[in-house]
Design a protein around this nucleic acid. Structure first.
Length: 803
RNA sequence: GCCCAGGUGGCGGAAUUGGUAGACGCGAUAGACUCAAAAUCUAUUGAUGGCAACAUCAUGAGAGUUCGAUUCUCUCCCUGGGCACCA
């Protein structure tokens, strides 16, 4: 076997590693633990494309490096398999989502395995497995029992033709993706999780974790902590003087509470604006109240606003709309002036109090609105103190999490609705509440006409006895969002087969927190925040050992198709890794994906460029042939010293090797995989040129390459006579003495422009170097006859002469 | 619109974080080997001018700070991602 034949050696080693359980994490070990984590994939029907493995390979490099560092590494994988695409596919084809999921995970598993990623497959999990979602439901019950899961009326996207609730993604340009009918908003009772109760801690504890700065920033912006004041504006009713007894339509004192981050600008507040959804205006326009002069006009406006998206409503570019609330005015507590009240959709109901004081002199949106509707703008108004007119409060943009889906393919919410007892949790002993199989007459995965989940159609499943009073009751038919299963999956990996608890506390104590979690930027504010929330809740219950789940978080960029577009089946530009593995080998694919560009940035695939990494591996192979032919002439044993053999150092290659070991080590830690590979390419070229490459040097090279290209290095390693796997070896140490150069080339600049080069000794003093530079013959002609104002020396870099 | 990331040769990108812009790879051109081709090897490869030494220009655009700016500041343009029911 002279030629490099990746197909043969890759399959061979993958089989051996599996047999020898090389990558299985040990629950008990004297070695320190290391938990590295990737976001478990959604097994879509399109199969794996070359973008999927990028983060896996990246974290695989980290994990393999950690093993060589002597750590007990947990690097697990599973399937986040509930979700819309599978459900929609099931609706279209009538196939059981379970069958579809099984098929898809089988394909994904085979494909991922073919890349030699060092996952511990013995811990594989699947969120759709009842043994798994039993615990998702169990955690939900804990939320419910602690009052953090509750029901509330929320607006959902509703297609009036298909009569189903739609995900935001299924709404295209305001219309239903399937039938094109304009989408309406519809109020529906939804399960909510009170993530806002944790807003402060989710914000503050970011200080203690090692996330990339932009990830922290994104989370902070999302939580949207702002300090400001709530100020009460008293109302004055015009239509009926009796109303001025300071009683509003809701029976409370007639006032509107606003939230502002700038209470100091109150003297400039010339009108109030309420969100169309504001409770005050809802009540004031209903049939029981008659305080407003233009109720119908306002009601028409509110109806119109209802179907706009939030982005449309708050975009500065879009023209502002609104109506004045006639028949009532507010009194500015600072100026004592009467100011008009408006309803406008640029104010959102969820944030602050759903009402603002408008200061058009200071706020761009208020100004735009005031100019359109001819409202007063005061410039040069007096500034007030922060707490002169209202009390200081902290508000968060973060909203509670809508946790219901009217879908089939999700975890059933384990609640029973009893006519007498109300919402009753399913007893823990009855978990999991399994999804009923759709058999016999019912083969329909569509939601019901009333907008309920398809589960509502299955009366046998729905109708149950109340666990409390044994009376008639019905199961909750809403299911959980796909975010549920992924909010705690990393805990399950610590103990994936446990049937008594979601995980053994001892094992959690050993493995948690996750040491390094890498994932997509698109998950920064949802999944990452949700899972931190669940983890904190479990921590408060004493069920997990840490208040934060992940010590470190980094992100990867997407791989785009050749034109720079997203890869998708519908565009027909998907590249299947199977073909790349077949043509070039898994090691080449791995190297290429790590080499193609910075790990955290989106990058376009290029079929043409893959050949580079392949040529590099051919070269590594060639050097291996050369080295293995050498007799051990370059290794000798020093008499008198125990055991070891001492290599004769080939100084130029050895120096470069030591520099490369250091560089690769540092680059892996910072995920600068592309430059790590580039430095190894330089080393390989150097070894290839050199007649006598020391065997020990070459083996060190194989070791530092092995996290990137595990198959070829394992093969070459064993050919050099090593009996143990390269995985069980130790990362080579670099020698500081071999890294420092004695002679250094520096440049000489005149006025910042490079004019000459010179060689200095590393021991040279600054004065000597400056003097040498001024005397340099190329430099003399540039500075002759000119006054030297300044000479700047940057250590080991340059001398700059300013004339 | 708001928030985030980015814009460097023909292409992907590098630049020790203020210190030689273009490492490494792809592609291209020429040569070696070959009957020939492929593969491989060697050399060249930012632009302009010049026989050459060399000079000038050049990191999205414009300004600023500095001995020195791809890097820092300001203004603007463009691309990608997120915006709460996609995963």
């Amino acid at each position: 076997m002279k030629e490099y034949n990746p197909e043969k050696i890759e399959k061979k080693w993958q089989k051996k590693w599996e047999e020898k359980k090389t990558y299985q994490a040990k629950d008990k070990s004297k070695q320190p633990k290391y938990y590295s984590l990737i976001e478990f994939p959604y097994p879509s029907g399109d199969g794996l494309h070359v973008g999927h493995p990028r983060p896996y390979i990246g974290m695989d490099v980290i994990s393999r490096k950690r093993r060589l560092d002597g750590l007990n590494v947990l690097f697990p994988i599973g399937w986040d398999a509930f979700g819309l695409p599978t459900e929609n596919y099931a609706i279209k084809t009538g196939k059981d989502p379970r069958v579809v999921t099984k098929k898809n995970t089988d394909i994904f598993r085979r494909q991922i395995k073919s890349l030699g990623v060092s996952f511990d497959w013995s811990r594989e999990i699947n969120t759709t497995d009842p043994k798994y979602y039993k615990w998702t439901q169990w955690i939900f019950l804990q939320f419910f029992k602690h009052g953090l899961a509750y029901k509330a009326k929320m607006a959902i996207n509703w297609c009036p033709k298909d009569k189903i609730g739609l995900a935001n993604e299924e709404v295209v340009a305001g219309c239903c993706e399937r039938c094109g009918t304009p989408v309406e908003k519809r109020e529906k009772e939804q399960w909510m999780l009170a993530i806002t109760k944790y807003a402060d801690r989710l914000y503050k504890d970011l200080d203690d974790v090692d996330y990339l700065p932009q990830i922290k920033l994104a989370q902070r912006n999302w939580i949207g902590k702002s300090e400001g004041a709530e100020i009460e504006f008293l109302l004055n009713f015009k239509k009926n003087p009796k109303d001025n007894e300071r009683r509003g339509p809701d029976g409370k004192p007639a006032l509107i509470k606003v939230f502002t981050t700038r209470p100091d600008t109150i003297f400039g507040a010339t009108y109030l604006v309420m969100a169309p959804e504001h409770l005050w205006i809802t009540l004031a326009t209903d049939n029981n109240h008659d305080v407003l002069e233009n109720k119908e006009e306002i009601k028409t406006y509110i109806k119109k606003v209802k179907n706009k998206t939030e982005i449309d409503r708050t975009s500065e570019g879009k023209e502002k709309t609104g109506v004045e609330v006639k028949g009532v005015v507010a009194i500015n507590p600072a100026t004592k002036q009467e100011i008009p009240i408006w309803v406008a959709d640029y104010v959102l109901p969820q944030y602050g109090t759903g009402a603002i004081m408008a200061v058009p002199a200071d706020d761009a949106r208020d100004k735009e609105f005031a100019e359109k509707f001819n409202l007063a703008i005061i410039e040069n108004y007096k500034k007030a103190g922060m707490e002169d007119y209202g009390k200081k409060v902290t508000k968060f943009k973060l909203r509670d999490w809508i946790f219901s889906r009217q879908r089939y393919w999700g975890e059933p919410i384990p609640i029973i609705n009893c006519e007498k007892c109300g919402l009753v949790p399913v007893p823990e002993k009855d978990l999991p509440v399994e999804l009923p199989k759709l058999t016999g007459k019912i083969k329909n995965y569509l939601p019901t006409d009333s907008g309920e989940s398809p589960l509502a159609n299955i009366s046998k499943w729905v109708n149950v006895k109340c666990p409390k009073c044994k009376g008639k009751a019905k199961r909750e038919t809403d299911t959980m969002p796909n975010w549920a299963g992924s909010s705690w999956y990393f805990l399950r990996y610590a103990d994936p087969k446990n049937s008594k608890a979601f995980a053994d506390p001892k094992k959690l104590k050993y493995w948690i927190p996750v040491d390094w979690y890498n994932g997509g930027n698109e998950h920064t504010t949802l999944h990452l925040l949700y899972s931190r929330f669940w983890h904190k809740f479990l921590f408060d219950l004493g069920l997990v050992p840490t208040s934060e789940p992940y010590k470190k978080r980094t992100s990867h960029g997407l791989i785009l198709a050749e034109g720079g577009e997203k890869m998708s089946k519908s565009r027909g530009n998907v590249i299947n890794p199977d073909e790349i593995v077949k043509t070039y080998g898994a090691d080449t694919l791995r190297l290429y994906e790590m080499f193609m560009g910075p790990f955290d940035q989106a990058i376009a695939w290029s079929e043409e460029a893959i050949i580079g990494p392949r040529r590099f591996l051919e070269k590594v192979w060639k050097i291996g042939e050369k080295v293995s032919k050498q007799k051990n002439s370059s290794v000798f044993t020093l008499p008198g010293l125990p055991g070891g053999s001492y290599a004769v150092q080939n100084s130029s290659v050895s120096k470069l090797l030591n520099k490369t070991i250091k560089k690769v080590e540092e680059d892996i830690q910072d995920m600068r995989f592309n430059t790590a590979i580039s430095s190894m390419m330089i080393l390989a070229t150097e070894m290839d040129k050199n007649e006598n490459v020391n065997k020990e040097d070459y083996k060190k090279f194989l070791q530092i390459l092995s996290p990137f290209a595990p198959h070829i290095t394992e093969e070459l390693w064993s050919r050099l006579g090593e009996k143990k796997s390269i995985n069980n070896s130790t990362w080579p140490a670099w020698d500081q003495n071999l890294i420092v150069d004695d002679e250094i080339k520096i440049v000489i600049q005149v006025n910042g422009k490079v004019r000459a080069e010179m060689i200095i000794q590393s021991t040279d003093q600054e004065v000597k170097i400056k003097d040498q530079a001024l005397k340099n013959e190329d430099i003399v002609k540039y500075i002759a006859g000119k006054e030297v104002k300044k000479v700047i020396y940057v250590k080991n870099r340059l001398v700059n002469i300013v004339v």
